[in-house]
Design a protein around this nucleic acid. Structure first.
Length: 931
DNA sequence: TCAGTCACG
DNA sequence: GACGTACGTGACTGAT
């Protein structure tokens, strides 16, 4: 990593001491990295992160002003002088997570493997030891780097001493402290004392946060001066608090002060780097199976069993060189990058925007051609003197004109991580991007169920790399900036890294697709869907604001009335929306029997419980109250989640609501929908259904809804080979009636309802207790019913047994199209975890195949419509087994058979089903009317 | 940030 | 006998 040579004024210093805040690091690593386990089944996520970090530091030895001395500093005891000052200090800290505890000793192993000294001392926090070493080294004229991002340690920053945040690859100097806390490092202790710290239980002054603290300290100089000036301040809460809590503030000042004069357990010279003997390090890495690190050690990848998610052995990639990325601000340079991409035939790209969602504005584009060969093209940066280092940008139209032919060139593969987003943004500038590869989809097709698929997590897992966190670039909360306000240098570091990392991930993931049998689902199901979803997101659906606001007003009136009645019955006002308070009212004050407490000690007040009370004749007024709370709950839910919020989601430009679809959200392969979620718009109750009337077609158009009928049961009939079910579907019989006839020998409302419940229970992986609860019968009876079901439909029993034996053996299930879902808990020694995994594994092939089929229908829909001269038919929404379209009224009769045909034949020719897929279609001026 | 609740398939 | 024993999601609320 190139750094300016004049970074430190005292550059003549020959010795450079690195002090690693080991305790701080391990907590951050634990929370940021996936919960990996090694081959001994020990949790090692944090250890892996820690080891990769030490490796990175060891690499710095070769640099111009790299470390000559290094030590890892750890917390040893829980009791320090701060506890004597204040007994509540760090008192309410929860114990470390269970699977982190065994990793503490491993951290010491890792440190020893690198032959680094480990400093820990009874009675002192790591921070105090670090401060003492730092001061001693500075006094000798050494340079010091503290490897940490702890805010308390930032107090130590001065010329010759900086902090190094390895997770984000950032050096933190005095500027950073000023930016973050509004004061230079020497005054940071004063600010921290005023602010307090709820995690460590440093009291501070109530009502004073970072902003107020910085303002006070800047104005008065230090804490004592602030306290002295308090009586003269203008009357108000601040003045009061400063006077009342002056002593707590003084105590806080002592708590945040670092001890700089701790006797050094090891002399400075003892920290000199000796070089790393290979044998112990290799032994350590092999013990844990850290293959990517072993590979860097020069090991041949001959481990007997490849670690599941470790990727393919590749020659070592160099670490990301953030300052080596190019900022492209003139046309000639941009043309060179476009030409190089065409020359090479593939390019990774990423777009930066001023917001979230498919309708955000374009701010810049980054590209990567090879590791560390990446650039950023700023296009929409604007605003104040923040951008002092931003030279002229290429006008957006000119830049896109240069990139457009390359982005549309069928000979150039465009690689993105969640490229659907980039497709949407660029499409709104008239830029077509094709062909594409998507590393988030690849990861999902390879590793669903093993870990998440976000870029940061994949970089950590596959590349042992910590990406610059977006939050560290733009900030958080109110002070958060738009990316267009970020200066060019920092924007380039962040954006080009994203493209670089995407390219590196692609080189790891793409070669795994074929050997791991993921090519089919990637090429035939998920990848073709990416541009289709982008189109649907951009299309959006028209939502009528008036309908929603009318409903909001109606609901508000009813909610207010219910509130009064509920408080009346309770005899006291309380927050109805608080399960805790409601539980107390019902079960303590009103004395209703049978309350069940959850693990947090709160009474359950969910629908089942309230309905039980409502039907309980002994509950008296409690039954009435429960009924009213149920109504209140329903109306509050509808109002807050739908009629109120949805109005906010109407895009000002288009007058439509644009959801985002997640391709990798659901383990089974289903899509998810968010911001807003349009897959859970009410339909089951009459009141809720009114909300669907707000989803409307443009004048002259209609909404068309097409849904698969009973698709999961049909697939179960096919996959489990159940002749009676299959024949019933072939004949077009009512499937629940048929089940009722088989199970109970007669069909009526009651037996049909029970049969329906059992049919669904089968899809979800049944247990006698679950079914017993649903049917309100005894577990024994439920078991008898399950046995009878299995006897009548023996294929189901076989399907379940085979699915379970396969998932236990392979660790994953597959759909008819080859989609894998991994179940890491299938062999858990914790029974309920294992049983949960078993039920999910029984369901996954069925739910997943259904998802595969509708995805294929979606990918084929637009070409089929175009073929039929129906390009004006727009596909807007997918709700798992339903597709929603908007089309000119005049085209309805021609569109219906095309849509019906595409959906019904979507499995073919890859999969030949032995049951027909039924598709039902309705139309109307609104989504509500189309059902 | 978590737990509880509830909207959907 | 526990496990708030049916699968998969996302959003909102109150409490910490």
């Amino acid at each position: 990593m190139a750094r300016p040579a004049n970074r430190y004024p005292a550059a003549m210093a020959s010795n450079h001491l690195y002090l690693v805040d080991g305790s701080g690091y391990i907590f951050r690593a634990y929370h940021r990295l996936p919960p990996l386990t090694n081959k001994h089944n020990e949790p090692v996520g944090a250890v892996y992160g820690y080891t990769a970090m030490l490796w990175k530091l060891a690499d710095e030895v070769h640099k111009a002003d790299g470390p000559t001395h290094m030590a890892v500093v750890l917390d040893k005891s829980s009791h320090t002088f701060r506890n004597d000052l204040y007994d509540k200090y760090k008192a309410q800290r929860p114990p470390p997570p269970e699977d982190l505890i065994p990793q503490f000793p491993m951290i010491r192993d890792a440190t020893r493997a690198f032959s680094l000294p480990c400093i820990e001392e009874e009675g002192w926090e790591a921070d105090d030891l670090i401060a003492s070493y730092a001061k001693a080294a500075l006094a000798q004229g050494w340079q010091v780097t503290i490897v940490s991002s702890d805010k308390d340690l930032m107090q130590l920053i001065e010329p010759g001493l900086d902090l190094y945040d390895t997770m984000n690859n950032r050096r933190l100097g005095a500027e950073h402290v000023v930016e973050k806390f509004g004061v230079p490092p020497v005054q940071l202790g004063e600010v921290l004392a005023l602010m307090g710290d709820s995690v460590d239980n440093v009291p501070g002054v109530p009502g004073v946060g970072p902003k107020t603290a910085a303002k006070l300290i800047t104005e008065h100089g230090d804490l004592e001066a602030v306290l002295a000036a308090a009586p003269d301040m203008k009357k108000g809460k601040l003045r009061e608090n400063l006077i009342e809590h002056a002593e707590m503030a003084r105590l806080s000042r002592k708590l945040v002060t670092l001890a700089c004069d701790v006797p050094l357990p090891e002399p400075l010279d003892g920290l000199a780097l000796q070089g790393i003997p290979e044998a112990p390090l290799r032994a350590f890495l092999e013990h844990h199976g850290f293959r990517s690190l072993l590979a860097r050690l020069g090991a041949v990848a001959d481990a007997p069993q490849p670690a599941p998610a470790a990727g393919v052995a590749l020659p070592e990639d160099p670490p990301c060189d953030h300052d080596g990325y190019e900022a492209v601000t003139d046309l000639a340079a941009l043309e060179r990058w476009a030409a190089a991409a065409r020359e090479q035939g593939f390019v990774a790209l990423d777009t930066e925007t001023d917001g979230l969602g498919p309708m955000a504005g374009l701010v810049g584009i980054s590209m990567a051609l090879a590791p560390n060969r990446a650039c950023y093209v700023p296009l929409g940066h604007r605003g104040g003197d923040l951008l002092a280092d931003t030279p002229v940008q290429i006008p957006i139209d000119q830049a896109l004109a240069v990139l457009k032919p390359m982005l549309a060139d069928p000979a150039v593969l465009k690689i993105g991580h969640n490229i659907k987003y980039d497709l949407s943004i660029l499409a709104r500038h008239g830029v077509v991007v094709a062909p594409i590869d998507d590393t988030i989809v690849m990861s999902f097709n390879l590793d669903a169920g093993r870990h998440g698929h976000g870029m940061d997590e994949l970089a950590a897992t596959h590349l042992a790399h910590s990406c610059i966190a977006f939050k560290d670039v733009v900030g958080t909360g109110k002070a958060q900036k738009g990316f267009h306000e970020i200066g060019l240098r920092e924007a380039t570091r962040y954006a080009a890294e994203d493209a670089d990392v995407t390219l590196r991930l692609w080189r790891r993931l793409k070669p795994r697709l074929s050997p791991e049998q993921a090519t089919r689902v990637y090429e035939m199901v998920d990848r073709p869907l990416v541009p289709v979803l982008s189109g649907m997101e951009r299309a959006g659906i028209k939502v009528d604001r008036k309908t929603l606001s009318r409903l909001s007003a109606e609901f508000a009136t009813q909610i207010a009335a219910l509130e009064g009645e509920i408080h009346g019955i309770a005899g006291t006002p309380f927050t109805i929306g608080s399960p805790k308070q409601l539980g107390d009212v019902l079960f303590e004050q009103m004395g209703i029997k049978g309350g069940r407490k959850g693990k947090s000690g709160v009474y359950s007040t969910d629908v089942n419980e309230l309905e039980r009370i409502a039907a309980d004749r002994e509950a008296g007024a409690g039954a009435e109250l429960a009924r009213k709370v149920l109504d209140w709950r329903q109306l509050s839910k509808l109002k807050s989640t739908y009629t109120d919020s949805l109005q906010q989601e109407i895009n000002a430009e288009t007058g439509r609501v644009h959801t985002s679809y997640g391709l990798t959200g659901a383990q089974t392969g289903r899509l998810s929908s968010n911001d807003p979620n349009l897959q859970n718009i009410p339909v089951r109750t009459e009141t809720g259904r009114q909300i669907r009337d707000a989803f409307v077609a443009e004048p002259g158009n209609v909404i068309l809804s097409a849904d698969y009928s009973q698709i999961e049961l049909r697939l179960a009939a096919h996959m489990a080979d159940v002749p009676q079910l299959r024949d019933a579907f072939l004949r077009g019989d009512d499937i629940h009636n048929m089940t009722a006839q088989e199970l109970f020998g007669e069909v009526n409302r009651d037996t049909r309802g029970r049969a329906k419940t059992i049919n669904f229970a089968i899809l979800y992986g049944i247990s006698r207790w679950g079914l017993a609860g649903r049917l309100e019968i005894a577990p024994d009876e439920a078991q008898a019913m399950i046995d009878r079901y299995f006897d009548r439909f023996p294929g189901i029993r076989t399907y379940i047994a085979e699915t379970l034996s396969s998932v236990r053996e392979n660790g994953f299930t597959t759909t008819l199209f080859g989609r894998k879902t991994h179940f890491t808990r299938i062999k858990s020694s914790v029974q309920h975890e294992r049983q949960g995994a078993e039920r999910a594994a029984i369901n996954a092939p069925i739910q997943g195949t259904s998802a595969d089929i509708i995805k294929r229908a979606m990918a084929r829909m637009n070409p089929a419509l175009a073929e039929a001269g129906l390009s004006d038919v727009r596909m807007l929404l997918q709700v798992h087994d339903e597709l929603v379209f908007e089309l000119p009224e005049s085209l309805v009769d021609r569109a219906k058979p095309v849509i019906q045909h595409v959906m019904a034949t979507a499995a073919e020719p890859l999969v030949k089903l032995t049951v027909p897929l039924g598709v039902e279609i309705g139309t109307g001026t609104s989504w509500g009317a189309a059902h």
